[in-house]
Design a protein around this nucleic acid. Structure first.
Lengths: 202, 202
DNA sequence: GAATTAATTGAACGTTCGTTTTATTATTGC
DNA sequence: GCAATAATAAAACGAACGTTCAATTAATTC
């Protein structure tokens, strides 16, 4: 047989992306087979190659999309210049809040982007690391501004930025929606801890 | 051919463990083949099966050893009862310091234990998670004691413990020995940040 | 120094992998 | 309704995988 009733390229590609995120997050990229992925989508393995030329390019596409979404998400919520929230403390609060909510709503994509970098070729790895560094640079600038203004007490900006990123990304490792804490409570908690961590006055 | 001159079971097993840690940390467990591992050790693939019945049991053995070493390491440096350092702040300082140094000296094993849990069968996974929970329980107890004594300001002990663990384990992701900061400086930095994070007076 | 045991090799097994090729059908544009 | 094209199926490819097994040699024991 061949083309099936109701088949549509855009829908199929979206279904592949979603199924791949779920399978890679659960099994790992190397452990997921293209046949397994095709089965989850409801298609034959050969059909996947109409949308992604290789398995690695599929992974790369998922990571690119995730990192671009993350950067775009911060761009949308970043406090406007001149506003009260544009001060370092307000920007840091917005950054942490957005980061927590973004990652909690995209657990699969986050696991893929954080755990499967090893499976990328050197060139593609560099691109993803560049996007990541761009995002982390936003945090470093906030910390540096707060340090300059004397509202944060920070020994080493780069080290503190890494520590904060690790801490707030780690939420997806343990958080489960059915747990006692709501997403709001978790975000508020991480915000408080971050502010104390940088020595901001409350 | 067969047994080679100078071959020794204990030495071979140790060489397998070390090579496996390095390869799994670099390539990932699924991506590492038994032939690759054997090549690194300088042996044929079949020889590996004298020491580990399956690939998964090898991974499990590596993780068990790492978790047991971690727990034993904390047991050795834990401040003695009755000492000044036995107060929550002293215990937390010792915990963070030991955690940072232990992980920095065992980067490969840490990556394996943190990133490859997916490849364990359910039963073995439960055992490793049990050891991990036991270790994290030590931190939770320190935080709870400090909260009780009024020397820490903590909103949620369990959440804070996870945040601290993620933050201080994250050091292995970015730290490189050739960087500008020494191991001592890094440990001191993480100690300061942790104390501020829990609202301890300095 | 012969018998025993420990350590390893080399070849092979069946399976599964990512990917390619060719054929076939559904949909779209005119 | 007919040509063109988009979407998929089915089968096959060679390579690599984890693992097993019989044969062989080094070290140890008596």
């Amino acid at each position: 047989m061949a083309r099936t009733t109701g088949s549509d390229g855009e829908k199929t590609e979206a279904a592949i992306r979603e199924a791949a995120l779920e399978l890679i997050a659960r099994l790992g990229f190397e452990a997921m087979s293209m046949r397994q992925l095709a089965g989850q989508v409801g298609v034959q393995a050969a059909a996947l190659y109409r949308y992604f030329p290789t398995k690695e390019e599929l992974l790369y596409a998922l990571m690119c999309e995730h990192m671009e979404n993350l950067i775009a998400s911060w761009g949308e919520v970043r406090p406007a210049t001149g506003s009260e929230q544009e001060k370092p403390a307000g920007r840091l609060a917005a950054f942490v809040e957005n980061h927590i909510r973004f990652h909690l709503s995209r657990r699969n994509a986050t696991h893929v982007s954080n755990l499967e970098l090893r499976s990328l070729s050197e060139e593609r790895l560099w691109h993803i690391l560049g996007l990541r560094s761009q995002y982390e640079g936003e945090l470093r600038r906030i910390l540096a501004d707060g340090q300059r203004d004397g509202v944060f007490r920070i020994d080493d900006v780069a080290l503190t930025a890494m520590a904060i990123i690790q801490m707030i990304t780690g939420v997806i490792v343990w958080f489960r929606p059915e747990l006692r804490l709501s997403e709001d409570e978790v975000a508020a908690n991480y915000h408080t801890m971050t502010m104390r961590l940088v020595g901001a006055e409350t």
